[in-house]
Design a protein around this nucleic acid. Sequence first.
RNA 1: GUGGUUGUAGCUCAGCUGGCAGAGCGCCUGACUGUGGAUCAGGUGGUCGCGGGUUCAAAUCCCGCCAGCCACCCCA
Length: 422
Amino acid sequence: MIEIINRPKGTQDILPDEIELWHYIEETIRSLTQLYSFSEIRTPIFEATELFERSVGETTDVVQKEMYTFMDKGGRSVTLRPEATACIVRAYMENGMINQGAPRKLYYMGPMFRYERPQAGRLRQFHQFGIETIGSAHPTADFEVIEFSVALLRQLKLEETKLTINSIGCQKCRPQYREALKAYYLEKLNNLCEDCQRRYEVNVLRLLDCKVDKEATAGAPSILDYLCDECAEHFDQVKDLLVKASIEYEIDPRLVRGLDYYTRTAFEINTAALGGQSQILGGGRYDGLGEFLGGKPIPAVGFAAGLERIVMLLKKQRLDIEAEEGMLVSILPLGDAVFHHAFDFASRIRRRGIPVFVDVMNRNLSNRLKHAGRIGTRLAVVFGDNELEASIVTVKNMIDGSQAQVDAAYLEDYIEEKLELS
RNA sequence: GUGGUUGUAGCUCAGCUGGCAGAGCGCCUGACUGUGGAUCAGGUGGUCGCGGGUUCAAAUCCCGCCAGCCACCCCA
């Protein structure tokens, strides 16, 4: 007995039933990016492992334990991309896009891979959409990225979402805050959970969003009190722009980012409706990334959204996607002698831009009609020997059940007319 | 990676303290030899997640593994 092979853990088959929802999301994204003048960029799904080690940061979970890394046959270590920002910046530098003027506004959409324990809204292969505005250090760039993310969710008709923002400083002021935090937590260290004791050494900022030790965190110093003048001014301007655009937000000084390259603005959009994985979108400024990757410093800001989470939310909201106007014509030939005419009719109708299904099963009319009905046929073209001898076919309207004898020579005209009338 | 929980037909599930694997829906066929949706009848469909153990006998009890879900962790 040959064993049946199942899909790999943490992956998903997206079936035809669900694909309409994906198309709806993808089309909304493409039209909105166009309206905001973001251009699509496609980069490889795997990259040199070092790209992620250098950018995402070797202390993060993503690099330490979540990467799909393997040696190729040439002895190179490559990794399935766990996120795209590093890839985009790599491509930006490699292709000399810095010479194409600033800012360069890019977007991407595609699969990402992280070796994690799967859970609702968390998969090993998942899809992200993201935008990056590269080349501008100005707060208007931060604002535009945030504004776009809000507009996108509104356009998608996603309900009950909340925007949270923060500033996490820069390489100048963050170290001082880090020290202040360490000093604050030092005396409490023994009472903290195991994870937090580890975080204390690895990445103190992460202590802030620990769910176990909420009490200890309550009195912790706020990053906002440690921002340097430039960072504070930048943050003020971003907030001011948001207020003037009537975009509601909440400031959460404990909002930090897990990835090392983030600077200044950090933001997230969350929803209460999703359970454990509440974040549907997250991003911020990453002025440090260019240098991390061995290039010039390049100011940039962007975000990434999880498409599966958007799909889940929309399903939960039971959003009715307007079904495509049903235009399908089904051709139901009766008897071996007339099968070849079916394909001739089909080509002629398809040339008018009308979708056609040809029944390629050998079964009686009753079952052919049954199947035609279930796939959403609007008009069924039925014919056997007797019709074709008279050069006619029978066209049945599947919605009201009426039918007509039609001159086979003008079948496509009749169908076109019939579909446009209804 | 840690903890909890679940796994029986394509789907939803029943199957008691071990005793011949079931139902509804779906699918296929027929009633209707050329007319779908309704009705009725018949049929198809399962290594009971996988492997081992206990037993005369395991879907049922025990152990291990795999997978799903939930929470932690982390993030989109």
